[in-house]
Amino acid sequence: MDYQIARHNMVENQVRANKVTDPLVIAAMEEVPRELFLPESKRGIAYTDEDIAIGNGRYAIEPMVIARLMQIGEIAQTDVALIVGAGYGYASALVSRVAETVVAVESDPVIAQAAEKIMQQNNYDNVIVVEGDAVTGYAKQSPYNIIMFDGAVAEVPQAILAQLAEGGRLLAVVREEGKVGIARLYEREHGVIGHRDLFDAYVPYLPGFEPIESFVF
């Protein structure tokens, strides 16, 4: 399979076709090989417009959603970014082509170790992979100019919102159980965090960020 041709077709037919025009985002999507961030058995479907199961309840979310979130985030080359629930690191690698530094926090130790190996072998030198509880983010390196969730959440934890820098942007697909998710942009201005809804996106939940079950008596 010619992955380079498949990647170019993905950019043309999935990314550009969904209103992504930012040249830095387009360049990152053209450059970063999604197949490297998938289990070997899934590489043949790397450029389909769907979420791909990568094991242990985890998914690589579809590239179009990542591209749209990156564009809306208006990532600058001086930004420090946090990717929450980084998986094998595809979104982290994409953001690293635009931002100065990326901290990728991943709860699953096996996946985190694999992501770190992929980054080292492919010279993503400005990505720091951290094994830790993604639900708490990674306050040690905060504040962040950009925070992005690599999967859907029932709600954005306050502990992670608190890690957003002044003027920072947080991007997440927020999804109620059984419903289509809403891509949402949070911004901190003058110490106050507000948000606005952007577009519909059905994205699988990140483990640990699912809706809390309520009991009816």
Rank of each mutant, 00 (worst) to 15 (best):
R68A: 03
E30T: 01
Q71G: 10
R43M: 11
V174C: 04
N56Y: 08
A53Q: 08
V180E: 08
L82Y: 06
G151V: 13
Y124R: 05
I118G: 05
A60F: 02
P23D: 06
E116R: 12
R68P: 00
N126C: 07
A99K: 06
G137F: 04
Y3S: 07
G194R: 09
A112Q: 07
A115R: 01
I5R: 10
Y186R: 03
Y202Q: 04
P143D: 13
I83R: 03
D150T: 02
V65G: 00
I160A: 03
V102M: 09
L206I: 10
S107D: 03
Q113W: 08
T101E: 14
L198T: 03
V11Y: 01
F215M: 12
E187D: 03
E100V: 00
S41N: 13
V127M: 07
E116C: 04
Y59V: 00
D197N: 15
V129F: 13
M1L: 09
A93F: 04
N145W: 01
G73P: 05
M70T: 02
M10T: 01
A6L: 15
G55L: 00
P109A: 10
Q163E: 15
R16S: 07
E12Y: 05
A93R: 02
I160W: 03
P143H: 11
G132L: 11
A6Y: 07
F209T: 02
V102I: 05
I182A: 03
V130G: 05
Q141L: 12
L171K: 01
V127H: 02
P211H: 06
I212E: 14
I61T: 13
A86W: 01
Y3K: 04
Y88Q: 05
Q77Y: 07
T136K: 07
A17H: 06
V20Y: 12
L82S: 11
V20L: 14
I111H: 10
H190S: 12
R175W: 12
R58Q: 10
G137S: 10
V102T: 11
Q77L: 10
N123E: 14
F209W: 13
K19Y: 14
G168I: 05
A81I: 07
A93C: 08
L164H: 09
Y205I: 00
V216K: 10
N126D: 12
S107A: 11
I5S: 08
P109L: 12
G73H: 07
E131C: 13
G87D: 01
P204G: 03
N13F: 12
P33K: 02
Q4K: 12
F217H: 13
G55H: 00
G137V: 04
M64N: 10
A6R: 11
P63G: 10
Q71W: 13
G168Y: 09
A76D: 14
V20H: 08
S92M: 05
P207H: 10
P39K: 09
D150H: 08
D150G: 01
F215Y: 15
D150C: 04
E155Q: 13
I118Q: 05
A93Q: 06
M29W: 03
Q77T: 14
G44N: 15
L38Q: 01
V65E: 00
V102Q: 06
M148A: 15
Q141A: 14
I83S: 06
A152C: 09
K140S: 11
